[in-house]
């Protein structure tokens, strides 16, 4: 469903991604690990379409509904409408915009783009409350401004609520586990597992093996210096946990 070929990208003239190759098929879970500053968040934002990053060369093709799209040609909101979802490492606070309004608008924009009827306030309220159960989120969060004053862990939970509402085709979770307490990690991982389907795929960016105990990856990649320098199965994550990155980043 996702085919990244020799992707080079930069910001403000500084090259960050230096030839990424990655292939993701429906139903798969890919974990991306790697040292701080290696380009993991950059890759995720480029896939989601952040306009500040420059793609210098390479290609990304994305298959949805049996149709191949040149992902790099689409605007960020079009990618989201076609099922790409990024859970941010640092979710943004939106003062004055309520979580409910944000989620509803988001959901309805996707409905609109797919030619499906939009939900009114009442119907959406019912719908979203079901989804909140999946991440065990209290009702009060619905009418607070998006992420404003949320604790680190609450913000991450809110990201997964959005994922549950939008039901994405390809989810990229950027360090969703960072900042979660032990119980929250379990709840959210179980939530993600419930949302997993054979037709969908997940890319998990993480520093910790812990998360991968809950959400089993099919592949583990090590991103370092803007390149994927090693790919293995879940045992690679365990090895990294024991030995760190030094032994592969030579």
């Amino acid at each position: 469903m996702l085919e990244i070929k020799d992707l080079h990208a930069s910001i403000d003239g500084k090259e960050i991604l230096k030839g990424i190759n990655l292939s993701v098929k429906p139903g798969e879970v890919h974990a991306i690990m790697g040292p701080n500053g290696s380009g993991k968040s950059t890759l995720s934002k480029i896939l989601a379409g952040h306009p500040s990053y420059e793609v210098d060369s390479g290609s990304v093709s994305y298959e949805v509904n049996f149709k191949n799209e040149d992902l790099l040609e689409l605007e960020a909101h079009e990618r989201a409408q076609k099922g790409i979802f990024l859970a941010f490492q640092y979710p943004i606070e939106l003062p004055g915009v309520s979580n409910f309004e944000f989620l509803k608008t988001s959901f309805n924009e996707i409905c609109k783009s797919q030619g499906v009827d939009e939900l009114d306030d009442e119907a959406f309220d019912k719908f979203v409350r079901e989804k909140m159960k999946i991440v065990e989120m209290r009702d009060e969060f619905l009418h607070r401004p998006v992420n404003q004053g949320f604790s680190g862990g609450e913000k991450k939970r809110n990201e997964i609520l959005q994922m549950a509402v939008l039901n994405p085709h390809l989810s990229i979770l950027d360090e969703t586990d960072s900042g979660l307490d032990i119980d929250a990690l379990r709840v959210i991982s179980e939530g993600v597992n419930k949302l997993k389907k054979s037709s969908n795929a997940i890319i998990l960016i993480t520093h910790y093996q812990r998360l991968l105990d809950y959400i089993k990856p099919d592949y583990v990649h090590v991103l370092s210096g803007g390149q994927i320098i090693r790919t293995g199965d879940s045992s690679l994550a365990k090895e990294l946990e024991d030995k760190g990155y030094d032994w592969i980043v030579s």
């Binding site: 379409g49 306009p51 909101h77 990024l86 979710p91 943004i92 915009v97 608008t105 924009e109 939008l166």
Partner: peptide
């Protein structure tokens, strides 16, 4: 604005909501 866009909301709508 990008946060909105990443949630399928076009820029124009995002700016109005902001």
């Amino acid at each position: 604005v990008f946060y909105f866009q990443s949630r399928a909301i076009p820029e124009e709508v995002a700016l109005r909501m902001l």
